[in-house]
Design a protein around this nucleic acid. Structure first.
Lengths: 226, 226
DNA sequence: GTATCCTTCGATACAGCGTATCGCCTTGCG
DNA sequence: CGCAAGGCGATACGCTGTATCGAAGGATAC
């Protein structure tokens, strides 16, 4: 049985008032501050002044906590605007911004089916906003956008973390991995790649995201227009 | 302690011939068979008839092992075909097939920057095959395809696992989550979404992947043609 | 008012994890 | 032949998710 259809335990006169919402809020606070590794049932319980096993009244497993965390963030995501293109564009952008606010989401997003109430509400909002679009293509469109966004933000966050790990706050990706790449390219084994990396214009994260999103939206336009 | 119960000293000058390649192969075999959770340094070491700490001569950390596993699979991925569209299409399809062969890859892909030799060789092959394309757009194109593929396969594998977990071998996604979704939709809170889910044609995983990829390639065509 | 039941809390325990430490044994060298 | 050096791997530490179960306490029956 899924978490969302299982009732919470009754509000007993308990030593510490607990609820799924409070548990999830505490977990998200930990994750925002110190990453997903900082989210252990023990630490979450400690943050709520409670024994670890107390949480098992509200959660069957740690994965359920992670599902609830993801679903909680989905509540922050709502597309806006008129017309299918603006709706999908804003869906992508707001999803990306949610990941920026909660970097740990990059580790979880796309990793499990999202059937929680907030994920469904997000889906409802998107589908409702796409009222003009033929019913059979709605899901493929949304799936394509979601797939692109998931992959794009994962790569973006991965890169950001790597830059951070080098200790360099420089904006240039090249500067962080430059030495290694220079040495590797010097072997001459990657002539075409090294040419592109050295000669081509480099886009920042925002530009890269929007470029790919632009391709996708333009391709969708081809199919919708007709 | 008596001699009889004292083990003989190891008579092997080279107890077990080890190498990164052998370690990574063993780890991949474990992951293919039982998933990423089955890959612990202890189990990998045991599979090689070796103490766990022995691996630390070859790896600084477990994450390095995971990076090596991913890079090893990248050696399997090479685009084929002529023309930018066929190259990118085959890049996407072969990457997806690699994930099908190694489902655990869905958990790792996009999660860390890939700078290993095989990842770079894959990049080299792609860029070289895109020789006709203007140098400044090569990376954005490849990034967009990669982002889409990463997100798409993550969702696809996530769904496949969920189906498997329900124990149903039915092909219909609806059949697995149907009861829950039916009950949820019956609340009337998701009218647009439930209409689409119920009335629209349902694509299988292959069709969904190719539909999204088609949008992306068509959108790229718009930018390249001009 | 008292006794009994039934729930639920949380201390304890267990198996497994990644990895730091360090003694011992093997090996190469003088 | 004796010694220094180096690497192997046993042991250990702190942490994880979660199963178990004794104890406590509110609710119910008489």
């Amino acid at each position: 049985m899924l978490v969302w259809e299982r009732p919470e335990p009754s509000n007993r006169p308990a030593p510490a008032p607990l609820s799924r919402k409070r548990i999830v809020r505490a977990a998200i606070r930990l994750a925002d501050a110190d990453g997903l590794d900082a989210v252990s049932l023990r630490k979450v319980a400690a943050a709520l002044d409670v024994g670890p096993m107390r949480l098992y009244g509200y959660l069957a497993t740690k994965d359920e906590l992670l599902d609830l965390m993801v679903d909680a963030v989905y509540a922050e995501i709502r597309p806006a605007g008129d017309g299918w293109r603006e709706v999908l564009r804003s869906l992508a952008e707001t999803t990306r911004l949610a990941v920026h606010r909660h970097e740990w989401l990059a580790d979880l997003i796309g990793g499990r089916p999202q059937l929680g109430p907030n994920a469904l509400a997000r889906g409802e909002a998107v589908v409702a906003a796409l009222h003009g679009v033929e019913v059979d293509v709605v899901m493929p469109l949304v799936s394509a956008i979601d797939a692109y966004v998931i992959g794009a933000v994962r790569r973006e966050i991965a890169e950001r973390r790597a830059e951070r790990a080098t200790g360099m706050d420089q904006r240039q990706w090249q500067a962080a991995f430059g030495p290694y790449l220079e040495r590797t390219f010097a072997t001459g084994r990657f002539p075409a790649l090294s040419t592109v990396v050295r000669d081509a214009a480099h886009l920042d994260a925002d530009q890269t995201f929007r470029a790919g999103l632009g391709y996708l939206l333009d391709g969708i336009e081809v199919h919708i227009a007709r």
